[in-house]
Structures are given as C-alpha cells and as structure tokens.
Amino acid sequence: MRRTLPNLLARHWRQLALLLLGVLVPLLLFADLADDVFREGGFAWDRTVLGWYVAHRTPELTALARALAVLGGLRVLPVVTLVSALLLARLGTRAHAWFLIWAVAGATLLNALAKLMFQRPRPAELGAVLAERGFSFPSGHAMSNMAFGYALVLVFWHTRARWPVAVLGLGWALAVGASRNYLGVHYPTDVLAGFAASVAWVAGVYLILGQRWPELRRSPLGKRAVR
C-alpha cells in the first residue's frame, strides 16, 4: 500500500514531535544565544540577574550551591552516570544503558568544544564565590546535568515512574544551573545555552539510537510499562 503524508504523520508523530521540540527548537535557541554572545558579548540582563543573586546570598544557600557544584561536577556525575548505566544493564536493557552514557559523555565533549570556540570569559568581576578555570559559554555543569536528567526522563518515559523521574531529573538539572549563577561563575545565558544544546543533543541521540535499538523506545522495566 502506498504511504501518504497523512499516514506517515499519524504513524511517526511522536518522532516528528521529538525532532521539532527536542532538537530543532533548542538548536534555534542555542544559535540565537550564541550569536548574541559572539557579536555583542551577551545580554544586558545577564549582569542584572547575577546582581540579584549576589544581593540574596546567605551562608546556607552558598553551602548548598557549593555542594551542587561538587555533585554535578566532573568528579561525581560521571560516576553516577556509570553506576546508573550498569544498573540499567543489569535490568537487561543495554540499549538504555548505552543511551545514557552517550547522552552525558557526548554533551560533555560538545561543551568542551563549544567553550574553545566561543572563549567567553567568566563573570569573575561580579563577585564570584568560586574561582573556576576555563571559559564560560556554555555552562558545562548545566549541559552535562541536563543531559543526565533529560536522558533519564526518556529512559523511564514508558513506565509508571515517568513523572517522578521527570520532576527529579529536570529539577536537579535546573537546580545545578541556578547554582552556577548563584555562585557567580556563569552568566545566565551560559546556563540557558547549556540547557538548549543538551536537550538538542540528547533528543538527537535518542532518535538515532532508537533506529538501531527499537527497545530504547520501550520500558526498561519490562511489563511495568505504561501503555
């Protein structure tokens, strides 16, 4: 039977929606932010937002932000990612395990390349709590932790745990991103760009690996999937 456009749309609407909302829209957002940073040095509200954080710092919030910096950094997140992937593999779903590894590792590598390309200085002059090395755009913490959180959402989307995982995973990524602004080591546009690039990367990896491993679009928990 000859396939028509309406039939194709009806059959593959989930993949098309993920392509549009998960890849194309975040890429356009990242391109817009990157263009402004490259041409103008960023938005005026970057410093306004950082100033607001400086005015609302407390010892307790600073300690929490420092803890998030460590937990979401290169010393801890790779270990958490590997342990999570091994647990998924033990459930018998290697496709989900490899997807999680590719999502986080790829986002981390892309972040390093993007920083070398843009070479935006960090906002140290605005009262940074920490002395961070390297460039600022896009935020590595925001990018890698959003990759981890968003990948987990996609892994568990076909289970009863979809919404708890979504709240915890995305909430964690947002908290880490906000902590980078609170600590004064990244501009808000660094964090937003990191989120956008990460979402586009993870969604793209999901679509590509889903063609090779169809089980990636099914529950890693077997019969406990949500239909």
Rank of each mutant, 00 (worst) to 15 (best):
M1N: 13
T4M: 04
N7D: 15
R14W: 04
Q15E: 14
L16R: 00
L18R: 02
L18H: 02
G22D: 04
G22V: 01
L24R: 03
P26F: 03
L33Y: 12
D35R: 14
F38H: 12
E40V: 13
G41S: 12
W45L: 09
V49L: 10
V49T: 05
W52R: 13
W52T: 09
W52S: 08
A55G: 03
A55S: 13
H56G: 03
R57C: 03
T58Y: 13
T58W: 03
L61W: 14
A63K: 08
L64K: 08
L68M: 08
G73D: 06
G73E: 08
R75W: 15
V76G: 14
L77P: 07
V79E: 02
V80E: 04
T81I: 05
V83H: 07
S84Q: 12
S84V: 05
A85M: 02
A97E: 06
T108D: 15
T108I: 11
T108W: 09
F118M: 12
G127N: 14
A128I: 09
A131M: 09
R133D: 13
G134N: 02
S139P: 11
S144Q: 11
N145M: 06
L152A: 03
L152T: 02
T159M: 09
A161H: 10
W163Y: 12
W163Q: 15
P164I: 02
V165W: 06
V165G: 12
W172N: 06
L174N: 04
A175R: 11
A175V: 06
V176I: 10
N181M: 13
N181F: 00
N181K: 04
Y182V: 08
Y182T: 10
L183S: 01
L183G: 06
Y187F: 13
T189V: 15
V191G: 03
F195E: 03
V199H: 00
V199A: 03
A200F: 04
A203M: 10
V205G: 05
Y206N: 02
Y206D: 07
G210L: 05
G210T: 00
Q211H: 12
Q211T: 13
R212K: 14
P214M: 11
E215K: 06
L216S: 05
R217G: 12
L221V: 07
K223P: 06
R224L: 08
R224N: 08
R227N: 14
